[in-house]
Structure formats: structure tokens, C-alpha cells
Nucleic acid binder design. Structure first.
Lengths: 225, 225
DNA sequence: CGATCAATTGAGCCGTCTCAATTTGGGTGG
DNA sequence: CCACCCAAATTGAGACGGCTCAATTGATCG
């Protein structure tokens, strides 16, 4: 059952039982601590069991770009499989816990259970799609649409984890949201205020209550129109 | 040797010889034709042998976002591995040719040659990193930096293929570049004109001559400073 | 209960977009 | 071969969205 949180996609019971071999190790991450840094050797990928973790790139000039806010059941570290070196930082936004999927274990087990590698391919494809969606958001949407889409994505994913889709707590600051969405923290703050003024949601600090999900969807552009 | 163009990353001779089994089929793509469309069933991924192919997302409202311009040796279609359904369109920008890597073949051979799946993981990781770089460009760079980074990326990849890093022909329109970089075609055109005025490059329609690569690098922000 | 950091809000500026006119180039048919 | 046509690219003027800088308020945590 723990495995389900770490490789949750359509696993067959039979396989899951074998999978426990794969995941022996867990790591607790206090808020603010790093799971890995840019340049670290990649010996494993990680499935989030608990908490929220951000991943961010950093270029030669120190410029930072957040590429994801990952929730329980999601995988991180796959950007490091190209050269066995992580190309991003992974930092816990709250006290978190991950399970460790060692690559050599993955390879060893994959030869016995071919379904495992197909499973893993799907997880990597999911990350590609996630990133492409972010590109779409950054490249094609205006600020209000980006924030609406961001909130809807969070809502959907939290809902899938059994939490309320309408009420949740943002684990990241305005600055982090802004960085992720290619906006300034002031713009994010103003947009929250405006959404609240227009009756789309209530927001108090990091507590969000979505009042009009349909209007958010229309705004985000995911609806036809 | 053909295989090298399709799975070019650090393959051992021994494996390559077995790989020819994997790549039996080729597809010729006239300029403007699609290799696959959003919603198509994914039964293969494709390695470009010749030409240039763009991949683009399209949302419910018809909004399009180009996520990549792929050159020979690069792989496309990996966004479809999540649900065996393509999530993007792939369209040839010039007469092109791809080799077909069938997934069932890949799975069959992977069980006999474990190195193959590691190889494939690397290719998927490369796509993740490529997309993350684009996110960084869209989220953190200003227009001139985006275009500079775009030109440098093209130059580097063409150079790796044996072409001149300083002189090349853009296979995409201003509008396509703009869409890819989150800018309008007018902004792209103005930037080219400005770069030319400042002596960074010559541009005549789609022919580019880079005159000051170092200045472009500094501009793109990939240099420290 | 201060100290500090996060968030809000305002004013003004700058970069990019929009809308429009013009030029250039390539392709086609007379 | 030239004339025409259409698509692509260039360039300009003006509007607007998001950024910058700055001040203020509101949380959180020793």
C-alpha cells in the first residue's frame, strides 16, 4: 500500500507485492531542506509520500526557475537520468517524506518484471506532459489565465488525493508562485485580490477557498470559447 | 550506422548491431505533413533521420503552443507514452524522414538487452530537460534573451550534426519562432533587425549568419554576470 | 511583545502587443 | 520571361499589461 503512493499508476496487485523490494528506504525532509541539489549524482528517483516539494533550475548567473510543485504520489528526480546528474534542486516546502527508488534496483527488477519498465516509462511521460503544460501556460496564457490554471491544477491533484478541491492551503509563497508562473509576486498578489473581489474565491494569506470553479475554468481557457 | 542517428547516445557497437532489428521501418514526410496528431494512438516513437519537425500542443479552445523544433538524431512522440495517446501534433517543417521505433519491439528487445531501456530512459530524461529549459526561457528571460538562447541552441545542435554553427537556415517562420518563445511575430522580427543593427548577426529572410557568438551568449544570460 | 518576513496596495514606467501600412520574395500562369 | 498574386517579413504608432520601486499592513516566531 505504501508502494501505491510511490508508483501509483494502475499497478497489478501481483506486481505491487514484488515492488516492496524496490522501495526499502524512506527519507524524511524537514521544511526547507533539500532532497538533492543541482550537480548531485543521480542514484535514485523519489516518490513523494507526504508533503510538498518544489523543483527549481538554476543557471550560471544564479537565475532560478521553479519547474514544479510536487505532491504525494508524484515522482521527482527524473531530470537526472540523462547523465546521472541532477539538473535541478528539490526543496521541501513543508515537512515531507519520500521513498527512494534506486536505479540499480529498478534495473534489476525490470528484467524480471517487464511491466515495471513500462510503468516507469509512463511516469517519465507524465513528467514530459506536465512540463509541456507549463510551457503552454507560460507561452500562451495571460497572467490571470496562468494563475487560474495553476489553482485548478492544484485543486484537481489535491482532490485526487482525497482532499477537498475547494479548500486548501498553499504551501508556497507568492514569490514562488510568481516565479513558477513567470510573474512577479506583486502581480500574483494583485490577481488573488482581484479574483476575491470578483467572487471567484476567498483568500486569506495561504488559505484558498474556491467559490466559482466553473468561472475559473472559463478564465483559464481550458474551456472552449 | 542508421541506428546511430536514431538512438545516438553512447551506444556500444555490440548493441547497435542488435538494434537494427528495432528499426525496420522508415517514414518519409513531405513538408507540411503530420507524423501524428493529438489524440492518435501511440504505437511507436520516432527518431528523425532527416529534416526538421515541430511539435505543438493544442488546447480545447484551439490555442496552439509549439513545444519543440526537432532535428536529426532527436526523438519525438514520448509525450504519448503516458496513455498510449499522443498529446501533441508533429508536423514536418521541410521534407523529412523518420525511423519508427515500435514500442512492442522496444519492450521485446529490452528484456534481452537491458542497456536498451537505460538508453531509452536517458532519451526521455533528455526530453524532460529540454522542456525544462524552455520553461526557464519562457519564465525567466526577456524577449531578447529568449531569442538569443534560441539561436544558440539551434547553432549548437546543428554544429553537433556537422553543419556550420555560424550559418544556417531557419526552417520555421517568424510566427512559429514567436509562438515557441511566447512572443509575437512582430517582436521576433524587430529583435532580428536589432541584432543585425548591433552587429550580432546578419539575417536575410530565413538565412542566419552569426557574427558575434560570444555577445549572443552574454545576452542570453547563460554566461555569468 | 518586539523583530522579521510575507503579503498587500499604489503610482509610474517600460516592454511587448495590437493594429495597420508597406516591402520583399517566391510561385504561377499568361 | 515578365507580370501578377499571395504569403512572409518588416516597420511604425499607439495602447495596455505586467514590472519596478516604494510604503504600509499583517503574520509568525522567538
Amino acid at each position: 500500500m505504501l508502494s501505491e503512493l510511490c508508483l501509483p499508476l494502475g499497478m497489478v496487485r501481483n506486481d505491487v507485492s514484488k515492488m516492496d523490494e524496490l522501495i526499502k528506504e524512506r527519507i524524511r525532509l524537514p521544511k526547507g531542506s533539500a532532497l538533492f541539489h543541482l550537480g548531485d549524482k543521480t542514484e535514485a528517483v523519489y516518490g513523494i509520500r507526504l508533503g510538498t516539494i518544489k523543483t527549481q533550475l538554476e543557471d550560471a548567473s544564479g537565475q532560478v526557475q521553479i519547474t514544479g510543485f510536487l505532491l504525494p504520489g508524484e515522482i521527482l528526480g527524473m531530470d537526472g537520468l540523462l547523465n546521472n546528474t541532477h539538473t535541478s534542486h528539490a526543496i521541501a516546502l513543508e515537512d515531507s517524506e519520500v521513498c527512494v527508488i534506486r536505479l540499480e534496483e529498478l534495473d534489476r527488477l525490470s528484467t524480471h518484471f517487464p511491466v515495471l519498465q513500462q510503468q516507469f516509462r509512463r511516469l517519465m511521460s507524465k513528467e514530459i506532459n506536465r512540463s509541456h503544460q507549463l510551457v503552454m501556460s507560460l507561452g500562451a496564457l495571460r497572467s490571470e489565465q496562468r494563475l487560474a490554471a495553476f489553482l485548478l491544477s492544484l485543486s484537481n491533484r489535491l482532490s485526487a488525493l482525497g482532499y477537498s478541491p475547494n479548500e486548501f492551503v498553499l504551501r508556497m509563497s507568492r514569490e514562488e508562485i510568481g516565479n513558477y508562473l513567470g510573474l512577479t509576486l506583486e502581480t500574483v498578489s494583485r490577481l488573488f485580490s482581484r479574483f476575491a473581489r470578483e467572487g471567484l474565491l476567498h483568500i486569506h494569506q495561504r488559505e484558498v477557498h474556491i467559490l466559482d470553479m466553473q468561472a475559473l475554468r472559463q478564465l483559464s481557457g481550458s474551456d472552449c470559447g
